[in-house]
Design a binder for these strands. Structure first.
Lengths: 123, 123
DNA sequence: ATCAAGAATAGGAATTATTCCTAAAATAAA
DNA sequence: TTTATTTTAGGAATAATTCCTATTCTTGAT
C-alpha cells in the first residue's frame, strides 16, 4: 500500500459522491501535485480487485468508484445521468440462489427519469 | 424503420449470444456488404432507446446487445468474461418498491468465477 | 408520377476513457 | 548497503464509440 494508493482509497472512501477516475485524480493532485492519471487508474483497479472499492459502470459514461462499506444499488436518470443510492435487503443471497453460483459481487442499476427531467417536457 | 435498422434488430433478436456492435456489424455485412459500422451503432442506440433491445455494459468490455422478450439477469465470470443468463422473478417490482421511483429498466450483473477458471488455479 | 423536405446512410475523422510503455524512483529483501 | 522488485510519472497508444459531411433514401403533398 503505497502512499499514492492510500490517497486514492481515502479520496473515494471520504467522498459522498461517486467519483470518476478523473475526479479522483484532481482531488489527489491537491495533496500530491505530481501524481499521474495512470497511477490513479492503476490503483483504482487494484483496489477494486481487492474488494476495497466498487466500480460502477454506466453505458456512455466513465466508470465511477464507490466505497464498499454498505452494499447498495444505484438509481440513474436516463436523461441527465443523475445518480442516487438505494437498498434492497438480501439481494446477494437471492442472486446466489437464483444463479446457483457463488456470486462474489454484483452491480444493480435501475434507470428512471428524474423529477427535474420529467418537468422539462422536452427531452 | 429503414432496412438497415430492421437488419440490425433481426440479427440481435435471432442470435442466442449477446453480440457486440462489431459482431452485429460483421453479420450485417453478410447481407448488406456496405453497411457502415456507424450505422450499426446508431441503430443499436435507437433500438435500445425504443426498448426493442437491451444494452449490456460490463466494465472493460464492449457493450453487448440482447433481445428484450424475456427479462433476465446476467452472470459474468470475473476472470474470462464468460456470460450466461439467469432469472429472478419479480425483480422489477422490487426495484420500484425499494427505490420509490418509476423504474423503467434495469441492469443486474452478478460476478463469479466460472468452473473452468476455478480449475485453472493460476489467475 | 414529380418534386421538395427531412431523415438516414456510408465512410472516415475525431473523441474519450482507459491501458500500456519506459526510464527513473521508491521500497523491500538479503 | 547492495540487489531485486514494485511502483511511479509522463506520455504514447489503443479501443470503443460518436461525430461530421456529402450523398442517398423516404415520404407526403401536389
Amino acid at each position: 500500500m503505497t502512499k499514492q494508493r492510500k490517497l486514492v482509497l481515502d479520496i473515494v472512501e471520504n467522498s459522498c459522491n461517486h467519483l470518476t477516475a478523473e475526479e479522483v485524480f484532481f482531488k489527489a493532485k491537491e495533496e500530491m501535485p505530481n501524481i499521474a492519471l495512470g497511477t490513479v487508474y492503476r490503483n483504482l483497479n487494484i483496489l477494486v480487485d481487492e474488494g476495497l472499492l466498487r466500480r460502477l459502470t454506466i453505458a456512455g459514461h466513465p466508470d465511477r468508484f464507490d466505497n464498499t462499506r454498505i452494499e447498495h444499488e444505484h438509481l440513474i436518470c436516463k436523461n441527465c445521468g443523475k445518480l442516487s443510492d438505494f437498498r434492497i435487503e438480501g439481494i446477494k443471497e437471492k442472486l446466489k440462489e437464483a444463479s446457483q453460483e457463488n456470486v462474489q459481487s454484483y452491480e444493480l442499476n435501475a434507470y428512471y427519469i428524474c423529477e427535474d427531467c420529467c418537468n422539462q417536457e422536452v427531452m
